[in-house]
Design a protein around this nucleic acid. Sequence first.
RNA 1: GCCGGGUUAGCUCAGUGGUAGAGCAACCGCCUUGUAAGCGGUAGGUCGUGGGUUCAAUCCCCACACCCGGCUCCA
Length: 657
Amino acid sequence: MTQISVTLPDGSHRDVEKSSSAFDLASSISRGLAKVAVAAEINAVLSDLSTRLEDGDTVRIITADSDEGRHVLRHSTAHVMAQAVTDLFPSAKFTIGPAIEHGFYYDFDLGGQAFTESDLERVEQRMREIVKADQPFVRSVVQADEALRLFADQPYKREIIERVRSGGADGADAAEVGSADEVSLYRNSESFVDLCLGPHVPSTSRLGHFKLQKVSAAYWRGSEKGPTLQRIYGTAWESKAALDEHLHRLEEAEKRDHRRLAVELDLLSFPQQLGGGLAVWHPKGAIVRKLMEDYSRARHQAGGYQFVFTPHLSNANLFQTSGHLDFYADGMYPPMEMDNGTYYPKPMNCPMHCLIFGSRARSYRELPMRLFELGTVYRYERAGTLHGLLRIRGFTQDDSHIYCTRDQLQEEIISLLEFVMSVLRAFGFEDFTFHLSTKDPSKYVGSDEIWTEATAALAAALERHGVEYSVKEGDAAFYGPKIDIHVRDAIGRTWQLSTIQCDFNLPERFQLEYVAPDGTRQRPIMLHRALFGSIERFFGVLVEHYAGAFPAWLAPVQVRVLPVAEAHHDYASEVVAHLEQFDIRVDLVEATDPLGKRIRAAKLDKIPYVLVVGDEDVSHRTVGVNPRGSDVERDVPLTEFADRVLREMTVLTDRRG
RNA sequence: GCCGGGUUAGCUCAGUGGUAGAGCAACCGCCUUGUAAGCGGUAGGUCGUGGGUUCAAUCCCCACACCCGGCUCCA
């Protein structure tokens, strides 16, 4: 037999010469395919293009412009970077260097030294030389003993091999090496060989559209107790155009940074005198926040929630009862000794809501009881973790705790999902992903029965909605399973916002009970639900989603009126007064500066409507409308414009139905 | 908390061992009738805070605070 037959992804068969490689197959299909091929999937295993095909194999050629293809490019580029670093820093010990979303990194031990920005340039330069040298990536498989000799002066590589051999490996180790006895290697030059399962591109000349981005520290094996390594992040793409586009996207994302926009738009600030992770809200930011909160309250009121308020401090006994002191004392602000005991700033609202539930005998007739509070909490986040509004020490949860019977659980979760998505849609989020976190067998409270039931209730609710969801095994909190809801923003980034969590723990700890129809005392199940998550964080996400250009109903200033000249000031004031009577947020900038300059300033303030009024408008009671993002309209009757803005503002009420 | 880099006017950023500068913004004046920067002037800084070295520190050294990029953590 000189021919073998392989199956292609479309189910067709193709004959190729015996002992053909995957690359030969690609070439036989088309020269174009061969040119963009970077690897192959053979019988569902990702493999090098050089792999010999067998009769009956199912083969899919991986091209550079696919997700898997880019993954291969990035992984190979990481190897090239490691070679470049070891060329330039001969004493560097290299560790691991995987492909990640949009790029790759590699971690090195520089013996206490750190890379500088100029080192990065040198490394990048050396990488370009390696690419030009067209070094082949050659895979080999050796015995573990031989590999240990090969990496005699690379302690991290030896550690990986040893761990795999002793069976103590985790997934990351196995991905580097292969199996316990046989170690997979890739050599891309005389001097550079790395542990790796591959696959890799055939040679370094297939790479080149990359950029090193930043250098930072990382812990070996992610452990704070391990050595500190130097990590270099880079990105790599299939073409210069794709690389440029990616870099452009990063620039655009930077322009949306809520910390930058918060300053530019005068929304809020983090005064140094206040301390880290604490924000003050300026009038413009406060208006937006108030509108968000007002809307949230209105929706909760309509949704059958009861509003409660609880204090910022509590006697330590409460957090002893709730278990927070046992589990999270490190994340709480330190205690204050007072004349009648020890007090803590609250890190959570739930214990206090439990006190409200437990304040008197409860009947099943009161369930489900939905308590809601915009509750401000304080958590001691470690200094290095703070990040604008997204990671902050003092923040306000839109926190709801729902006490219900086991029979009510599923229905309650279903209506919660609807409620959460409906509110998020009102803020412009349409694309949701769902994650169901299940029991961690090593850390949980409650009976298996109730875990199964609650997890099934969460899953059923998701399925009833017909939404896709991923299961995160063992990722639940110790007190119960949960659903996390992520949203995709205007430029495709995802943010975790809402969470719905079942809790069997707190009702037990607080000995919460209700009287059932048969007169017995039963323990309620508790659902924790944060919708925005934290008002501060959600606001930050909104700023980035809208790039600071809030929709009209949220904009701090909705309309700015610009008289063309001083002669139009009186009429401009009338326009302002007319709009203000409908609670439209409107301001006026008099004609001391030229019109063009005032227009520009209004645009930079991202105001939804700029109204220009001149002679014709005065005589016809009209306005010139310059809307954000569309064309100027002249001679719009003032009353018509007011109606239009009002309609836009009532989008809320429409969504409420 | 760890590693690295920072902190100069409201903002963006120059700069120097001999107590500081630009553009924009602000304020004042002039000009000004139609959609993204008219002209001129004025004011504005304990160069993050504290200590040290020095005749002299915004600059060099140390500590602290805060910020940035990651790591770790995130009820």
